[in-house]
C-alpha cells in the first residue's frame, strides 16, 4: 500500500500544479458548471477530476475485493497459493534440474522475490485489459473518469501483493536472509512496480475496447514477457552488451531493484534499473495521454 501512497502524493502534486494553472475558473462547489464539447485540440490529463472521484475509486476497489472471492472455498488463500506453488515448481525445474544460478541466494527466495512483483504485473495486465470492456454497462450509462477503471484493476492486486509479502518475511526468516539498509528504498521499487503495471494496463485496456484481440493475446504476452525478465534467472546471465536493451523491459529494473532492496543482492545492475525507470515514466505518461484520447469514444465502441 506504500506504493499507492507514493502515487497519490505524486498525483496530488501534479493536481496542485494543474489547479494553479486552472484557477481562473474558480468553480463554486455548490453549483458546479461544466461545458460539454468536442475535445478537439484542447487536452488535459484530467487528473484533478480523477482526484475528485477518489471515493468512487475506493468503492470500486472495495466492490472488487468483496466480489472477487465470492463463492470460492479457500477465498483469499489463492493469493498465497499461487506464488508459493509457482516458486516450488520453478525451484524444482530451474534450480535442481537446470542448475540455474541465483546470485548466491537460496533459489526459492531468489525466485519468490521476483515472482511477487511479477505476479502483481501479470495480474494487473490480465485484469485491466478486460476491465474497461467488462464495465461497458456502466460506461454506456453514466459518466465518471474512465481512467479509474484500469487504475482500480491494477491497485486491487496490491492486496494479494501485500499478503505475499508476509510469506516472503517468513521465507527470509527460514533461510536466514537478512535485509540490508537497502530495504528503505523498497517503497520506491513497489511504486515502480505499480507504475509499470499501471502504464501497460492503460494502454492495453484502451486498446482492448476497439481490438478485442488484445485480450486473447495477453496470456501469451505475459508468458513470454516473464522469460524476458529476470524472474527465473539472475540478470547477471544477460550479456553485458545487451543490458541496455534488456533494461527497456520495465519489469527488469523492477525485479532487479526488488532483489537488491529485499535480499541485499550483491551487485545489482543500476544501468538496468535506470533504463527501466525511464521507460516506465515514458510509458505511464504516454498511457494516460493515450487513454484520455480514446476514452471519448468508449461509449460508442463498446
Amino acid at each position: 500500500m506504500v506504493g499507492a501512497e507514493i502515487l497519490y502524493t505524486v498525483a496530488a502534486l501534479i493536481m496542485n500544479y494543474s489547479s494553479e494553472a486552472g484557477s481562473k475558473q474558480q468553480l463554486q462547489p455548490a453549483m458546479p458548471s461544466i461545458m460539454i464539447e468536442p475535445a478537439g485540440s484542447k487536452f488535459s490529463l484530467g487528473l484533478r477530476e480523477i482526484w475528485n472521484s477518489r471515493e468512487l475509486f475506493y468503492f470500486l476497489a472495495w466492490r472488487d475485493m468483496k466480489t472477487r472471492y465470492a463463492q470460492t472455498a479457500i477465498g483469499a488463500g489463492w493469493a498465497i497459493m499461487q506464488p508459493l506453488l509457482t516458486t516450488l515448481v520453478f525451484t524444482v525445474v530451474f534450480s535442481y534440474w537446470a542448475k540455474v544460478p541465483s546470485d548466491g541466494l537460496p533459489y526459492p527466495i531468489f525466485a519468490y522475490a521476483a515472482i511477487l512483483p511479477w505476479t502483481l504485473f501479470a495480474r494487473s495486465l490480465e485484469r485491466s485489459t478486460l476491465s474497461v470492456v467488462s464495465e461497458g454497462g456502466l460506461i454506456k450509462k453514466v459518466y465518471f473518469p474512465r481512467l479509474i477503471i484500469p487504475v482500480v484493476s491494477t491497485f486491487i492486486n496490491l492486496v494479494d501483493f501485500a499478503v505475499g509479502f508476509i510469506i516472503l518475511g517468513a521465507m527470509m526468516l527460514w533461510y536466514h536472509v537478512w535485509p540490508t539498509w537497502g530495504i528503505i528504498t523498497l517503497p520506491l521499487f513497489v511504486g515502480m512496480a505499480v507504475a509499470a503495471s499501471l502504464s501497460v494496463s492503460m494502454w492495453l485496456s484502451a486498446l482492448n475496447v476497439k481490438y478485442r484481440d488484445v485480450a486473447s493475446v495477453i496470456p501469451l504476452v505475459t508468458q513470454l514477457w516473464m522469460f524476458a525478465s529476470p524472474v527465473l534467472y539472475p540478470s547477471s546471465m544477460v550479456p553485458e552488451r545487451l543490458r541496455f536493451l534488456y533494461g527497456m523491459n520495465p519489469m527488469a529494473g523492477v525485479i532487479e531493484g526488488f532483489r537488491w532492496a529485499l535480499l541485499g543482492k550483491a551487485h545489482p545492475d543500476w544501468k538496468i534499473v535506470l533504463v527501466s525507470s525511464g521507460v516506465v515514466l515514458v510509458l505511464l505518461l504516454g498511457g494516460v495521454i493515450f487513454f484520455r484520447r480514446v476514452e471519448r469514444t468508449f461509449a460508442d465502441v463498446i
Binding site: S33, I34, M35, I36, E37, P38, A39, I139, K140, K141, V142, Y143, R296, T297, A299, D300
Partner: peptide, 11 residues
C-alpha cells in the same frame, strides 16, 4: 457518456 461531434452544452 459520449461527446458531441460538434456544438456544445453548458450545464
Amino acid at each position: 457518456v459520449t461527446e458531441p461531434t460538434k456544438g456544445r452544452v453548458l450545464i
